[in-house]
């Protein structure tokens, strides 16, 4: 069974249709990249998987989005539980004004966990998972703001991992980072896919080519092409995709 199944999804901001009849399946433990010009709908689409768009007034969705076979837009779905299962990392690192430890422990505590030993264990595990442990293990009580941009982004990934999601959404996770930090995030994505299913939005075509197994190209709210990344970047079937990835677009 596919981890994520999207069928005939339309999405509206008021009267504006941002997504048009999108269908795609995502296998578990794969990295899928969404590419396309600004305003094409890729960020709107990624936010559908954890119902982040629900927070925007006058939005509506038609079609079905299933995770592990369950329609996440059906009545009675616990959105908090959904968001625990579908973690998200944003473009700019957004640590809380707290210590490194408390940042990672935040989600666990908010969810009512009080067992200090378990929380310590989970924080260490998550920081290791985000390839940050070795750099911060001796300064866990220091402010998260003392970390570099790249470290802050990995801290945010650790924070997302702490609540044990099975899917990670990444909306341009490296666009604000230098090449070395970007390389660390990309290496991390490669490691994380052994455990998680990852969906990444990126404007960096080479990044999509490097880290993803499959790539979907979006344009004006439509998904133009979805295929193995190797095919998209060597021999895409649609001219529009080719024009975009070779920089002939527009």
């Amino acid at each position: 069974m596919n981890k994520i199944e999207v069928k005939n999804v339309d999405f509206f901001y008021g009267n504006f249709q941002a997504l048009k009849n999108i269908s795609l399946d995502i296998e578990a433990n794969k990295v899928v990249a969404f590419i396309g010009p600004s305003g094409c709908g890729k960020s709107t689409f990624i936010r559908i998987f954890n119902r982040m768009n629900d927070l925007i007034p006058e939005t509506r969705l038609k079609g079905s989005v299933k995770i592990d076979g369950v329609d996440i837009y059906q009545k009675g779905i616990d959105v908090d539980e959904l968001r625990k299962n579908v973690g998200m990392v944003f473009q700019r690192p957004n640590p809380f004004p707290k210590s490194i430890f408390d940042n990672v422990a935040y989600g666990l505590r908010v969810n009512g966990l009080k067992d200090k030993h378990f929380i310590c264990q989970k924080v260490e595990e998550s920081l290791k998972g985000a390839a940050l442990w070795e750099e911060v293990k001796d300064k866990l009580k220091e402010s998260a703001f003392a970390l570099s941009g790249g470290q802050q982004q990995r801290l945010c990934i650790a924070r997302a991992l702490a609540i044990s999601p099975s899917i990670l959404l990444m909306d341009e996770p490296a666009s604000a980072l230098d090449p070395i930090s970007t390389a660390k995030i990309e290496e991390l994505i490669w490691e994380l896919k052994k455990t998680y299913t990852i969906v990444i939005v990126t404007h960096n075509m080479q990044q999509a080519a490097r880290v993803s197994d499959k790539t979907a190209y979006f344009y004006l709210g439509e998904m133009i092409e979805y295929d193995d990344t190797k095919i998209i970047f060597t021999n895409p079937k649609k001219e529009s995709t080719q024009n975009y990835i070779t920089g002939r677009f527009g």
Binding site: M205, Q206, F233, T234, N235, P236, Q242, I245, T246
Partner: peptide, 9 residues
């Protein structure tokens, strides 16, 4: 220029 697709070919 990191060419891809038709440009790489």
């Amino acid at each position: 220029y990191n060419p891809v697709a038709i440009d790489l070919r």
